[in-house]
Design a binder for these strands. Structure first.
Lengths: 146, 146
DNA sequence: GCTTGATCTAAAGTCCACTTTAGAAATTAC
DNA sequence: GTAATTTCTAAAGTGGACTTTAGATCAAGC
């Protein structure tokens, strides 16, 4: 920890992230480090939190772009307030709830389908239109994203 | 539907997939079309099922490679039996159950964390080691996958 | 029989989330 | 003060799941 803040290496040690990942996150607006005389990045303690938060949000299924958008509501260069975090956390909770609900619906439909051999796209309950919203991650984009 | 089976275009119409996607799936062992005199692919009706199955499995979080491995247990050029599908479907159900469980655990922990402002990697329950197994999808590979 | 549309192959491009590489400059440790 | 370590930037590489492109051949409708 050099004077003036944490170095990128310090931050890497504290978060477990690779230095390259932290720089990458910067290009995506997750952190906004200052620079010292020599042009090296200097971080504040709040940046540990921003990164931790981003990591957790990723595990909840958010994309980096989505996380950055959410983070845009937090102060860039100082520690966010408790209510800042609370607000963002609540949105995340809503997201995870949705995901669970969709998976449960999928599971229930699969239960109905197991053994029925009906796996044709027109008739299978697993492929009902209202469920296409549940699409996430890789997959046939044309089909799932329009 | 030309004589001798379905064309790739027919299959695209029936499944909603792009023609290019079907060819791509072929390179990954999901379907194994025959060829006609002119070298064009000819599919059987069972291929609609194979593709449908692959699409559903993807939505359950399986990678193409994993799906292909599962599919290797199904007959390549004829319709799979009911018990073939049942066996594979059961494995899928196990996968989706796991996913739901992991998400629920994550949600419960998030509940405990909302508002506490504790989001630091060392102490946050969301980051407990035993949960790192739950890692899936993109994210910091160094951190989550070792 | 000819034109239009479908299909063919191989290679390159795309998006996401990063990592790796290379060469240079800054910082730290002794 | 010098060697070792860290950091810097920009660009290219990776892996998964596809799409796009280009030029050529095949099939179908009239």
């Amino acid at each position: 920890m050099a004077k003036g803040g944490l170095t990128i290496g310090d931050l890497a040690d504290r978060t477990g992230l690779a230095v390259s990942a932290i720089r990458f996150y910067e290009t995506h607006g997750i952190v906004h480090p200052l620079r010292n005389q020599g042009g090296h990045r200097r971080y504040g303690r709040h940046d540990i939190r921003r990164l931790s938060f981003a990591l957790i949000a990723q595990r909840l299924g958010f994309s980096l772009a989505g996380i950055a958008a959410e983070m845009a509501h937090l102060p860039a260069h100082k520690a966010p307030s408790k209510s800042d975090w609370t607000r963002v956390s609540h949105r995340m909770r809503a997201g995870i709830e949705d995901r669970i609900t969709q998976l449960e619906r999928l599971r229930d439909r699969l239960d109905g389908c197991i053994g029925c051999g009906c796996l044709s796209l027109d008739s299978c309950a697993l492929y009902n239109p209202d469920d296409r919203l549940a699409a996430e991650g890789p997959g046939p984009r044309k089909l799932l994203r329009d």
